[in-house]
Design a protein around this nucleic acid. Structure first.
Lengths: 149, 149
DNA sequence: ATTACGAATTAGAATAATTCTAAATTTTGA
DNA sequence: TCAAAATTTAGAATTATTCTAATTCGTAAT
């Protein structure tokens, strides 16, 4: 299987014709490539503007359609902060998001090793979680081992 | 200090004239009373409809204004699920939210005793969290000790 | 190749939650 | 009591997203 890694600046035409049961059209390839190219968290409109640079004819509606297709096939995650417009993230590893209030930039935050949600929340037994979103806001600290791309 | 507890069905006129530095106008009292009266998580429009029953002249714009005033003075919390319309919650205790996908209803979920966020996330040192939102979705289980109001 | 079919794309209109504006009203405090 | 400030109000404006209907594309069968 092709690796959908970030910061790889992939050539969209290298993607296979189908991923996770989703037919990879020209536009979907382009949108996915845009998301993989940078590890920021662009809005649909940001993605549209970037996609346009390589594919002048793509429309905003198509970008919305592609994003929704990619999200529903678990190739991309949708990220929400309060009522701000949705952002998109190709990092599929278990993580959550921190928004630095100074810059507005969003950073991926991972859980410490071995932490599971059921370990920290009081949920009635039998509860089945399909979807989880953790959004943090505040001031970002600087640390030697945290990479700011 | 007056106790702003839920399910108390308070008489809005019992609220003091100022809470947490916020002048309690007639409309703000009404909106706060609506939120305290039930432990569901109404949208702005729900709050508007309920407020109207006791105060026929209140406007939707005012409800939005009041909610924003109450939220910014930490008398009420704003709750977001993806891009759905915001909901409001008068429970100020540390907790997060679970939406049952069958009913759409939102339930408060608390952390297990002694769990702190810094304990479970890998954050660069010096990071200062001002705001945290955890939203879960899935199927609600039934448990003997979980109260469904 | 050509054709036919379903899927995807497109432009633009529609929607809906929220915010804004400006006028009217209420409250405060001198 | 009066002026200034704050709040409320109705309705217009905004904006992210979704919808609609027409067109185009891709594929696979003839």
């Amino acid at each position: 299987m092709i690796s959908l890694e970030q910061n790889t600046n992939p050539d969209p035409s290298d993607f296979p014709s189908e991923i996770e049961g989703l037919r990879m059209t020209k536009q979907r390839r382009e949108v996915l490539a845009v998301l993989l190219a940078e590890r920021d968290h662009p809005t649909a409109n940001d993605v549209f503007l970037r996609s346009q640079q390589r594919m002048a004819t793509i429309s905003l509606a198509t970008v919305y359609n592609c994003l929704e297709a990619l999200v529903s096939h678990n190739l991309v995650r949708q990220v929400n902060f309060e009522r701000e417009s949705s952002r998109y993230c190709p990092n599929l590893a278990d993580h959550c998001h921190f928004q630095d209030e100074e810059s507005g930039k969003i950073h991926d935050v991972v859980f410490k090793d071995g932490v599971k949600l059921e370990d920290i929340l009081v949920l009635p037994q039998g509860t089945d979680i399909n979807h989880l979103e953790i959004s943090l806001k505040g001031h970002f600290g600087q640390s030697k081992n945290h990479k700011t791309p």
